[in-house]
């Protein structure tokens, strides 16, 4: 098995719900807690497994906002595992999930240096490195109903932009999506062979709104009322 995520950049609305759901589930999960620093202070910060960046792609008028959630890609050639001097970082043979043994980590940050995606964050309170577990404590939990045996981020996504599955199975939903939508990986030139794939936004054109302009008297009255109550 090669478990991972597919993230649909066409429908991701950038709401950060996946990041919040991730934090909520994993702070009491296998690698928890996800410590917060000064949560009620002026500059709250803390450990997150999943962060969302917002980009503008292309130039006006052919531009588009693209929201890009980033978490561990569970790379096939996981350099973070190779560089780990203590053997705390490891990649599971059976499903390809990259994990950190919290009892072995010495907090040297070397794996975070080796990761191009910023997927690993040091928990300064515990002195150990933390990262996405692909919700390993959900996906194999026999006590959960089968439809809930998915990562918290995938379950919570209101836009259905996240999909979880086995990339080794060509008939799985994630494999089909990557095939049909031309899914790509990030920074492939580094040769880490990330498992997670991103589906590019579908091509769009600027919508012509000139025909929508109304000049009727009723419309003018409505505009005047709008102006009156909004200013």
């Amino acid at each position: 098995m090669k478990l991972g995520l597919v993230i649909d950049l066409d429908v991701c609305v950038g709401c950060h719900a996946c990041a919040v759901a991730c934090k909520q589930w994993n702070t009491s999960g296998t690698l928890g807690a996800l410590t917060d620093y000064a949560p009620y202070g002026r500059n709250p910060s803390g450990v997150w497994f999943n962060r969302i960046r917002h980009y503008e792609v292309g130039d006006f008028p052919h531009n588009k906002t693209v929201n890009m959630p980033l978490s561990c890609m569970h790379c096939e050639d996981a350099e973070c595992v190779n560089v780990c001097p203590t053997g705390a970082s490891y990649k599971r043979k059976e499903d390809g999930i990259v994990l950190i043994d919290q009892d072995k980590c010495m907090g040297c940050n070397y794996c975070a240096w080796a990761c191009p995606y910023g997927a690993r964050e040091l928990d300064r309170a515990e002195g150990t490195m933390k990262k996405c577990t692909l919700c390993i404590d959900r996906i194999y939990d026999q006590y959960l109903p089968p439809e809930e045996r998915q990562p918290a981020c995938v379950l919570t996504c209101p836009a259905h932009a996240r999909h979880f599955g086995d990339f080794d199975n060509p008939l799985s939903k994630v494999s089909q999506l990557v095939r049909e939508r031309g899914g790509t990986t990030l920074m492939p030139e580094l040769g880490y062979q990330p498992t997670n794939h991103y589906l590019p936004p579908r091509p769009t054109r600027p919508i012509d709104t000139s025909a929508e302009k109304q000049t009727s008297l009723m419309h003018k009255v409505k505009e005047w009322v709008n102006k009156l109550i909004t200013t």
């Binding site: 997150w48 960046r53 917002h54 292309g58």
Partner: peptide, 24 residues
């Protein structure tokens, strides 16, 4: 461009997604 996968367009960061500094 290679980091975001958009190889044929200009890409600019609009928002980094966090208000304060992070470990990264």
């Amino acid at each position: 461009n290679t980091a975001t996968g958009f190889n044929r367009a200009t890409v600019r960061l609009l928002d980094v997604g966090h208000s304060a500094g992070t470990f990264l």
